[in-house]
Design a protein around this nucleic acid. Structure first.
Lengths: 113, 113
DNA sequence: ACCTCACTTCAACGATCAATAAAACGATAA
DNA sequence: TTATCGTTTTATTGATCGTTGAAGTGAGGT
């Protein structure tokens, strides 16, 4: 036998019926987690906890360029974690809902232990 | 003025006092989210919902090599999402605690909407 | 001791990601 | 209209990530 790809190792396991979620759900969940999985994007979400902020405000607070912040926000928006609204010249971002707030809260809670 | 790095844009914002979490906490949270931010690793966590499983079992269920599974589990372990225990020739992995179960549950719940 | 089994690590490669700076965009004011 | 402001997009480039197969490890079995 050639040593190509060993799938499993051939021994017996107990039978298990796993109720797996639809691919779309897991994909979206992974995309959400992936978007949160960067310290700067997570800081951005943290800054949005107390309400909406515009890009320049966030850029100032994080000491980064607007371009950088805008790109991070775009990723967070793509993962449906934040929502956008334009108001005159400014664009305001906020956490998209309380569910998001809960998830991030849980994450911080677990990490603080 | 040269167009180098524009930090903010110089206009006035309302004063905000942001209670930011310690860097270590945010780093761990980001590491956790990042580890969950891959569809295959998330599937692995999903398979661990009903209790401990050994590497070969997971490899079989996912149709992947043990090498691949082992490396994914290593990343999940590094993020403190799963725990390891050796039992004879086998190594069993499980979700590290109920807190992790909660976070993943929330994530799936939000993504199912 | 030796061999095998279950698993882990290594190294090389390709693919994906993020930062920077520059250009483009959309809304408003003059 | 033209100018300016706040923001987004683009392109380049460097860094990081995940996969593969092969070699290494460690616990049992013979």
């Amino acid at each position: 036998m050639r040593e190509e790809e060993n799938i499993g190792c051939g021994h017996e396991h107990e039978a298990h019926e796993h109720e797996l979620r639809p691919a779309g759900v897991v994909e979206r969940a992974a995309a959400m987690a992936s978007a949160m999985g960067d310290i700067r994007r997570l800081r951005l979400l943290e800054l949005l906890f107390d309400g909406r902020h515009c890009v320049s405000e966030l850029a100032e607070e994080m000491g980064d360029s607007m371009s950088a912040i805008s790109q991070r926000l775009k990723i967070l928006h793509g993962a449906r974690l934040v929502s956008r609204e334009r108001d005159g010249k400014h664009v305001y971002y906020s956490l998209s809902d309380d569910h998001v707030r809960t998830i991030i809260g849980q994450l911080f809670l677990h990490s603080a232990e």
